[in-house]
Design a protein around this nucleic acid. Structure first.
Length: 555
RNA sequence: GCGCCCGUAGCUCAGCUGGAUAGAGCACCGGCCUUCGAAGCCGGGUGUCGUAGGUUCGAAUCCUACCGGGCGCACCA
């Protein structure tokens, strides 16, 4: 609906002012005040400089060129030069049919035009269970993926991890110590080893020669406490399996797993270094090989090859992203914790220095800020080494998958968040997710009632013109905003706008529910109301699906 | 010290590609179940939009400085 007004306006403006650059999608917004119509545009005001006229004159010229369209009832020029559009009531009512006809496709669009986008998220190294921060990444990343799918993109969900570095060595040594029956405070426990109890189970399974299968690997324990390489393989597979299980319980799955070790074994790291040297952006100093990332906006140059001959982690990062580019992803989004923001500038700089045509701002980053967990009125510290922290699994078990996902998505990802477990549990009824799910369940209940009373829905009988109450108008208007909400949420990576929107839908519906009856004799009115309510149910279900939250038929 | 993010009602947060009187929820008070589910609805008030400047016809929104909080600033990953 918004897009319709936008098109008409752009066309009229182009006719009125052929010599001026008119944006193809001029700024249009929903009005807050019904007296200002349904949509308003400030286009005329933005053209004052170019047109050298006052905004009201410009607006008048545009309005004069607006083509007649039965869907637009009236256009007004108001205030300093706003163009206000009043839509024909039939347009709003047509939304109901549009939703019912589209079904689970309502809200989907083709803006992405089938282009490939790679969304990398979670990417936790397999050294321990996933914690709440990973949960936020999983919720946000998966929601982004769903938003991109809904707007016509060909989405790949990817998980990148390191199975061979220093941290994994540490994991192997810690597991080996557990195999030998050591505990963290014993003599001989590896320095800075992972102290978590979870490694006891890993050690036992390894010694018992169990087979573990993660989504991307399968390993059988060798049972030999002296074989560090075998322990490493086994521990990685075990923890990957745990992560996969937790993610699956959270409703998140990946299409591709990428290994840092593969970048080495496939020669991509070496190739990247060679390419950077060949491009002339490197120099040797203090025994190390440096990349002049400052040429590309980084605040200092970065070491690529250390004095000891090893590469810094920055090199595989660049090699990895180069591979993403070469795989054909003109758009790539990295969802990660804000504590990694320092790597953004240097990864992009490294990609620029390759001189292979990668755009400056590629890839995109969506960062999420820290989640502080509160329990019993106290902050729970996230210390992996001490082994005491709230895992994603704990949260799912305690507050449920739906509430956890909803909660982690409901606020802007670049704001810090406090997750109060006690609050989420004890007041779970007041959690907004239930408010929305309840609206859905309530509608299903109404439909069941009608079924029992043998009042089947007959769309041909519905007279939408009888949906005149304020509640009905408001509900229809809110529902009509869904498609543009999805587009904007995807474009801006603003996942929190979806839960917000759903809150409004539920709000409009609950008010309506309390004000009007649906099980009534008057068939033309009844069917119209049922149509509206069914459209509401569909919109709620589609919106909840974007969040990965269930839409229950009863609660 | 440098960089990034945040600072909106008592609390938790929307709104931020500038727009017409700044919005929700929670909490608090008072109503509403013989009628489609009260996990609901209706009514009641709350703001120096961190501070100070600047740009603009117009600033919570953009710019600058400062204050406060968080996170980064390795030849660790």
């Amino acid at each position: 609906m918004k897009f319709l007004v936008q098109e008409l306006l752009a066309a009229a403006a182009a006719r009125a002012w052929p010599n001026i650059d008119i944006p193809s999608a001029p700024h249009i917004e929903r009005t807050r005040d019904a007296g200002h119509g349904d949509f308003a545009s400030n286009l005329a005001m933005t053209l004052t400089k170019q047109a050298r006229r006052n905004p009201r004159e410009i607006a008048q010229a545009i309005v004069d060129e607006l083509s007649d369209d039965e869907r637009i009832a009236r256009v007004e020029i108001a205030g300093p030069g706003f163009i206000n559009f009043f839509l024909a009531p039939a347009v709003f009512r047509a939304t109901i049919d549009e939703i019912l006809d589209s079904g689970d496709q309502y809200g989907r669009s083709h803006a992405g035009d089938g282009q490939k986008v790679l969304i990398e998220f979670v990417s936790a190294n397999p050294t321990g269970p996933l914690h709440v921060g990973h949960g936020r990444g999983a919720a946000v990343g998966d929601c982004l993926a769903r938003l991109y799918e809904a707007t016509g993109w060909d989405v790949t969900r990817e998980f990148y991890y390191n199975d061979a570095g220093v941290q994994i060595d540490n994991l192997a040594h810690s597991t080996q110590a557990r195999c030998r029956g050591l505990t963290p405070d014993d003599a001989g426990w590896p320095e800075a080893g992972y102290r978590g109890e979870y490694l006891v189970a890993v050690a036992q399974a390894y010694l018992a020669r169990e087979t573990v299968a993660a989504d991307d690997r399968e390993v059988t324990g060798a049972g030999d406490a002296e074989d560090l390489a075998a322990i490493r393989e086994f521990a990685v597979a075990w923890l990957r399996r745990e992560q996969d299980a937790d993610l699956r319980a959270f409703g998140v799955q990946f299409d591709v797993y990428s290994l840092e070790s593969a970048l080495y074994s496939e020669g991509r790291v070496a190739k990247t270094v060679d390419a950077l040297v060949a491009a002339g952006h490197t120099y040797e100093a203090e025994g190390a090989l440096w990349l002049r990332t400052t040429d590309y906006g980084d605040d200092k140059d970065r070491v690529m090859r250390k004095a000891d001959g090893g590469f810094t982690y920055f090199v595989p990062d660049v090699a990895y992203h180069r591979a993403k580019w070469e795989r054909g992803f003109a758009r790539a989004i990295n969802e990660q914790g804000a504590d990694h923001h320092g790597t953004i500038a240097r990864v992009r700089a490294g990609l620029q220095a390759l001189d292979i045509g990668i755009p400056q701002g590629w890839p995109d980053y969506v960062l999420h800020q820290m989640v502080t967990v509160m329990r019993g009125g106290e902050e729970v510290k996230l210390s992996k080494r001490a082994g005491s922290y709230i895992t994603l699994r704990d949260l799912i078990d305690e507050v449920g998958r739906d509430a956890t996902r909803f909660f982690l998505i409901a606020r802007k990802s670049d704001s810090q968040q406090t997750f109060d477990i006690d609050l989420a549990r004890s007041q779970s009824e007041e959690n907004p997710v239930y408010y929305i799910q309840y609206a859905h369940a309530r509608i299903c209940s109404v439909l069941r009632q009608l079924d029992e009373k043998h009042m089947p829905f007959e769309r041909m009988q519905a007279d939408y013109s009888r949906l005149e109450s304020e509640h009905e108008q408001r509900l229809i208007t809110v529902l009509s905003r869904f498609p543009e909400t999805v587009v904007t949420a995807a474009e801006d990576s603003a996942v929190q706008t979806v839960p917000h929107f759903l809150r409004e839908v539920a709000d409009a519906f609950h008010s309506y529910y309390n004000a009007q009856k649906f099980v009534i004799e008057d068939a033309s009115l009844r069917n119209a109301r049922i149509a509206l309510v069914m459209a509401t149910r569909q919109t709620l279900a589609n919106g909840l699906r974007l969040l990965g939250v269930s839409a229950p038929e009863q609660m």
